[in-house]
């Protein structure tokens, strides 16, 4: 049993739990986006940052991947944490300005505009990778991937044509936090069920 503090309240956890899991067990809310209960965490979006303090020293960590440790002091609503969140939301508003879901969530946290420049006003995808994780970990396939690594990576099938691999289960659509997968799924799933494709992959 590990004992530590969240917002000055003592909490207990088992080794292997994350800070986020423990906070949720104690019903302390931490916003998340690239995190989903059904798949492994990636720590990509940084929305779930919390502050760890030890005397005058402090650091920000992503609670969805940070493992619990004896005696740590976690704060979920400090100025620094709120700043990061605001920053993350502004980044997201610039990255995927077309996503209604992101706009809503950002507005809920008081962020309605962004300082960053918008590259593509029609972009909905925040490149969180939840869809690919769902496809791999839940369905057991790799029907979609991040084409082009890096900031330009887009979710699609290779060559953006329907893949034979996709079984059209829609897990990616259900898990997508921005709604971006809705407009992408048709390109991925295709229709044919009796198809003429090479055995070789």
């Amino acid at each position: 049993m590990i004992t530590f503090n969240i917002n000055d309240t003592e909490v207990q956890a088992e080794p292997g739990w994350t800070v986020l899991e423990t906070a949720r067990q104690y019903e302390i809310e931490i916003p998340t986006l690239c995190y989903h209960e059904a798949v492994s965490s990636s720590g990509a979006c940084r929305l779930c940052m919390v502050e760890l303090k030890d005397g005058s020293w402090s650091k920000l960590v992503a609670s969805c991947i940070y493992p619990v440790a004896e005696g740590i002091n976690v704060y979920t609503e400090t100025e620094r944490v709120k700043n990061v969140r605001r920053w993350v939301f502004e980044m997201l508003l610039a990255q995927c300005p077309a996503s209604g879901e992101i706009k809503q969530l950002a507005a809920k946290h008081g962020v309605e505009s962004t300082r960053f420049s918008i590259k593509d006003p029609d972009e909905e995808c925040m490149v969180c990778g939840l869809c690919t994780r769902a496809c791999e970990e839940i369905v057991g396939l790799s029907a979609i991937s991040m084409v082009d690594r890096g900031v330009h990576k887009k979710i699609g099938a290779p060559f953006s044509r329907p893949t034979e691999v996709c079984v059209a289960c829609g897990c990616c659509v259900t898990i997508c936090p921005t709604g971006a997968m809705r407009s992408r799924i048709d390109a991925v799933r295709g229709i044919p069920k009796i198809t003429l494709t090479p055995l070789a992959v």
């Binding site: 369905v139 396939l141 079984v167 289960c169 009796i194 494709t197 055995l199």
Partner: peptide, 12 residues
């Protein structure tokens, strides 16, 4: 031709 049956179900 002989279409190969590709059941659209999860691999498991």
């Amino acid at each position: 031709f002989l279409g190969v049956h590709h059941a659209k179900v999860r691999p498991e």
